[in-house]
Simulated assay, not measured.
Amino acid sequence: MRPMLATATATVPDGPRWAHEVKWDGMRVLADVSEGRLQLFTRTERDVTVAFPELLPLAAEFADMLLDGEVVCLRDGIPSFAALADRFHVTDARRAARLAEANPATLMSFDLLRLYGVDLMARAWSDRRATLERLELEGARWQTPPTFDDGRVLHAATRDQGLEGVVSKRVDSPYLPGQRSALWLKAPHRATVSVVIGGWRPESTGTVASRLGAVLVGVPGPGGLRYLGRVGSGLAGRTGQALLQDLEPLTAAESPFGTEVPRVDALGTRWVHPVLVADVQSLGLGGQGRLRQPAWKGLRDDLTPGDVEPPEGL
């Protein structure tokens, strides 16, 4: 099963029909506890249980439950997507245990979909939430963060605290697995967009010709990727070198873009097969349909190109 998704909004709704939560900068998971064991599944239904051994004791809390939440790695109380990116691709149990000790993750649970075999998804969000809070899931590695009545105050507070934004939910909303619904709205402070990498460019300066300087990105469209621009900010140093190791085996003879790539961007680009998904932050789309001031966040091993949707306004 895939989780319910929120629709982007520029305005946080108000009034008694809405409740509001912090938007966490992490990886969305469904946490399934059954028969004494925990399984964690990503948005694409990939099992990532082995990557987070510190969450396994959650199975001792209740015999049967299905939680919707976000796995985060906190740095001084603030989620760090870069820190999390070192965790969710791990498939070796011994390496995962070492990383869990050095860089532990926390599950932020915000919805309850099943309890003791009873499917709760058709019930109103307010009922599901009240039941979740009665479980009192507060441990060293899992939390049930609070909800708030005033979304606009929360939006300002999350901006001041360096958090990602706000998710607003209709209190009467059922849970719609796999659907992106206007019953849930997300208002990030700086939009995060999932994109597919179609090529990379070496640095234009320095003596190392193979050092990555930027990636060319797009979203799936007719005839190939629709070009959204190149991203270089945030790819300096070890981040760029690690990404280059992932890109080099994907070398392709031709551009995977179905729309025109400007000559200034295409010149010197090494094309790759469009299989890697990444998150970038931007100030939206410019007049030519390009991302404005994009900055690299990290690879999304939990997503495939088929999960990527065009950004708002495209």
Rank of each mutant, 00 (worst) to 15 (best):
C73I: 08
R98M: 12
L84W: 03
D92Y: 03
D76P: 05
F62I: 15
F81Q: 07
A96E: 04
A97P: 08
A63D: 14
C73T: 09
D86P: 05
R75G: 06
R75N: 07
G77C: 05
V71Q: 02
M65Y: 06
P79H: 02
P79T: 01
H89R: 15
D86Q: 14
F81M: 07
V71I: 14
A96M: 05
A96R: 00
D86R: 14
D64R: 14
G77S: 09
L84Q: 04
D92H: 10
L67Q: 03
A96Y: 03
F88K: 10
I78R: 14
A83D: 08
R87C: 01
A82C: 10
D68P: 06
L66S: 03
V71G: 00
F88C: 07
D76H: 09
F62K: 15
A97D: 13
A96W: 01
D64E: 07
D64N: 11
F81L: 06
L67N: 02
T91M: 08
M65V: 09
P79R: 01
H89E: 14
R94I: 09
D92S: 10
D64F: 04
E70V: 00
V90W: 00
H89A: 15
A85H: 12
G77W: 00
V90P: 01
F88P: 04
P79C: 07
V72I: 11
A96Q: 04
H89L: 14
E61V: 13
E61H: 15
A83K: 09
E61F: 07
E61G: 13
C73M: 07
